[in-house]
């Protein structure tokens, strides 16, 4: 009898503690989410204010008195953002497609085919994971700008980024995880390697393949150093580099800065919101960049 009472009391205490813990959990998570989202909120409110208008205090937040959409129009007209967007989309789409192709091809060659020299080629490919592109800037600049004369061309911005050991490594991993019987069955039906890869294997690993593609799109859109180095002409700039130059050219009119930033992140944020669940699951599975 006594022990039951103690147990009951203990259970009640646990519930209370658990409840309080839950409240604190939600509080902490909400505060951090707010801190992370605040810059986005400010980006929007500042983009909508009139030039030099002071924002008014609304609780802990600052908001404009009136909403002004002209900033977007003015930002769009001040710099050729249409051209920047075209460049960014073109470069990101082409790079991503080529990267997916080379990753699938390379991954397949290393996972499913057997040929002389394979092990050495595999080690060489893996070895490039240890060499960050940043430290190869100088020789790559000499190759691309001095020998190939590719400054201010799409080639310089696309071709070096169409292959990465990471993509090949990842595709090899997922190909190896697929059952061997798939290939044996396909071969009995007279299916060749390429058709097997395209029609059977790739659909099997679609979630990973798409995650890889979305990430590559984001990384390519984010590319900055390379664009700074290889573009001089205004009409070759990407959104990222165009935005950077825009901020020095218009001076400190923050409402224009924020309008331009907001435009420049819009496609990425929209894409992210569309695929967020698959992307976060994919990254959890894949684990790294």
């Amino acid at each position: 009898m006594n022990s039951t009472v103690t147990f009951e009391r203990k259970l009640g205490w646990w519930r209370l503690r658990f409840g309080a813990g839950r409240a604190i959990t939600y509080l902490v998570l909400s505060v951090v989410a707010l801190l992370i989202l605040l810059p986005f909120f400010w980006m929007v409110t500042t983009a909508l204010r009139a030039p030099d208008e002071e924002l008014i205090r609304f609780g802990p937040l600052l908001i404009p008195r009136h909403v002004h959409f002209e900033n977007f129009v003015q930002a769009w007209e001040t710099a050729p953002f249409g051209r920047y967007f075209f460049n960014s989309f073109f470069i990101a789409i082409v790079t991503t497609l080529a990267f997916l192709a080379t990753s699938a091809m390379g991954g397949y060659a290393f996972a499913r085919l057997r040929f002389p020299g394979q092990h050495i080629l595999w080690l060489a490919t893996l070895g490039t994971l240890m060499i960050p592109a940043e430290v190869l800037l100088i020789p790559n600049f000499i190759t691309l700008a001095k020998w190939l004369h590719w400054s201010d061309t799409y080639y310089a911005l696309i071709i070096p980024w169409t292959v990465s050991a990471f993509g090949i490594f990842l595709m090899r991993q997922v190909f190896l995880q697929q059952p061997k019987e798939l290939w044996e069955a396909a071969r009995l039906d007279g299916c060749g390697h390429l058709r097997f890869l395209w029609q059977i294997l790739l659909p099997q690993v679609r979630p990973t393949f798409l995650t890889l593609g979305v990430l590559k799109f984001f990384w390519t859109w984010d590319m900055f150093l390379w664009v700074v180095l290889f573009t001089n002409a205004d009409d070759m700039r990407t959104v990222t580099f165009g935005l950077y130059r825009f901020t020095s050219e218009v001076g400190t009119s923050y409402e224009l800065w924020m309008a331009a930033s907001l435009m420049s992140i819009a496609p990425i944020v929209l894409l992210f919101l569309l695929v967020r669940r698959q992307l976060i699951e994919g990254i959890s599975r894949v684990g790294l960049r």
């Binding site: 986005f40 400010w42 859109w221 984010d222 950077y244 901020t247 930033s261 944020v269």
Partner: peptide, 10 residues
Amino acid sequence: ITPTIAAVVV
């Protein structure tokens, strides 16, 4: 996920 330069501008 936000492009670095846009975030830096903010």
